[in-house]
Amino acid sequence: MKMISRSLIAALALAGAAMSPALAASGHTDNPPAQKWSFSGPFGTFDRAQLQRGFKVYKEVCAACHSMKLLSFRNLSEPGGPGFTEGQVKTLAAEYKVKDGPNESGDMFERPGRPADRFPAPFANDEAAKAANNGAVPPDFSVIAKARTYSRGFPMWLFDIFTQYQEQGPDYITAILIGYEEAPKGVTVEPGLNYNKYFPGNKIAMANPLIALFDDNGKAQDPGFYTDGTPVTREQVARDVSAFLMWAAEPHMEARKQTGAKVMIWLTILAMLLYFSKKKIWARLEGGH
């Protein structure tokens, strides 16, 4: 029996080297470093200030190319999110021009945005997006934090069940944003591509998007970019926007985890009651079981 269980563990170990969609394409790619997230673990909640900063980064940097078509302005003031006030959201939405119609005379018209409107996309259609971006459509960001991952490898993926690690997405996005560097000697990067040590295969079409915020030495162009006094560093900006994208992909995460705690307590108590009931009932039998 011992031999069997040992070989069973060995089999599980081998099988474990699998799972989780392997991104590894070619060449060596560093694993994204694990960041500390306020929303990790069973009681994690989003850091409101971080989500607000992340939204600012999205709005002023990413939104130039990446749509977020599943989100509405109203989401920004909903519970479990960045915690903007309804007034702030109204003002924000009104900054945008939204196409509406047709009106009574059959014409389309533009009006100021309302909280119920979706985030406007940067390009009118995929073809326009392609034309502006070397033939590739920049992916929509609505669920990007759940659509990106990296291979955890064995035995890490197995431990993840117990540690509840599920922040591959935001870790990966953060890594990509800070992973741009000079290509090492001997690696040629074709025109239109950029070297990134965390991108599978190392050659990424997207140019370093944070270039807009930092100079060549990594110093912030505008130290007052954040209005809450948070230092404007490459890592900070990368983490903030990643956290924002995680919330966007999973806007009810806080409700989910909080409901989970209640369900777990309830089920555990029920299980204990049933366990003792079972013991008591089976004790009626000679020999029990």
Binding site: P42, K146, I161, Q166, Q168, A249, T259, G260
Partner: peptide
Amino acid sequence: FAWFVFYQPNFLGHADNYI
């Protein structure tokens, strides 16, 4: 079951299916 539903809801799926 609840452990996965509430704490690891995407563990058993593939990230690619969010594309």
